[in-house]
């Protein structure tokens, strides 16, 4: 008989996330992977500003809270402080990773920094109450794009996996989502690979997770999950954008 249990890498502190938010699922997947790889004792997680800023309360491994956008730089420091014994992951939102922290993201990728990045793309700033994100879709209504994102005025969404895939540096880039059982399973496989890559010293792995924000999208949780299928995936196609080791094998 299979008994549903909380992963060991999660504390007993109840999540503060809104009902229907997919942060909880992704936290769980990361924790399950940490358990399965048996790396809790050497893992250091970094959560910068955003809805997940208090992730330090939820994971049982050592945790660092970082300034907005700077997690890849902080991770660089933690990793290089003891490359043999530190497994380092960052957990970042879209405003953090693709707007204020874009330089840190791109350069950590270019250096093929041996870290794992979990990138939550929910196309909105959640913590501050629903402003336009660098990944908000054209026409998307937010607090700071009340008439819909006008691409003439504020430009186009940033496709992070596509962008980084042009670099020679990064080892692994994959976009997944967690809006169905099948998608959750694929997301976990991707996250596990991203950690395994670090253990194998392969370098920079980033998993972009299309996530929902029912509160700030103004939708029910159910509708929000459907919106990922209907609006987000067509703009942000799922899949592997870079897998250097696999490419090498083919060559």
């Amino acid at each position: 008989m299979v008994v549903f249990e909380k992963p060991k890498a999660l504390t007993d502190v109840p999540f503060h996330y809104c009902p229907g938010c997919t942060h909880g699922i992704v936290h769980r997947l990361v924790a399950e992977v940490i358990d399965e790889l048996g790396i809790e004792g050497k893992t250091i997680g970094i959560a910068p500003v955003g809805c997940s800023v208090m992730a330090y309360d939820y994971f049982t491994c050592d945790m660092i809270e970082a300034a907005h956008g700077r997690a890849p730089a902080v991770a660089t420091g933690v990793k290089r402080a003891d490359p043999e014994n530190h497994i380092v992951f960052t957990y970042q939102g879209d405003g953090d990773l693709a707007s204020i922290g874009m330089a840190e993201t791109v350069h950590a990728a270019a250096r093929n920094e041996n870290i794992t990045i979990i990138f939550i793309n929910n196309a909105i700033y959640g913590m501050t109450g629903g402003q336009m994100a660098p990944t908000s879709l054209p026409g998307q209504v937010t607090q700071t794009s009340p008439y819909g994102r006008n691409t003439d005025l504020c430009g186009w969404p940033i496709k992070v996996c596509e962008l980084l895939s042009e670099l020679d540096g990064p080892e692994y880039l994959e976009r997944v989502t967690v809006n169905s059982v099948a998608h959750v399973r694929q997301a976990k496989r991707a996250i596990k690979k991203a950690f395994q890559n670090q253990i194998d010293n392969k370098g920079f792995s980033l998993i972009e997770v299309l996530s929902s924000c029912p509160t700030n999208w103004g939708m029910t949780p159910e509708k929000a999950l459907k919106w990922i299928d209907d609006a987000m995936i067509p703009y942000y196609p799922l899949g592997v954008y870079k897998d250097r080791s696999a490419q090498k094998k083919e060559a």
Binding site: A66, A73, G77, R80
Partner: peptide, 10 residues
């Protein structure tokens, strides 16, 4: 921030 990371690691 890299300094912040190394310092965090002691």
């Amino acid at each position: 921030n890299m300094v912040y990371g190394v310092s965090s690691a002691g």
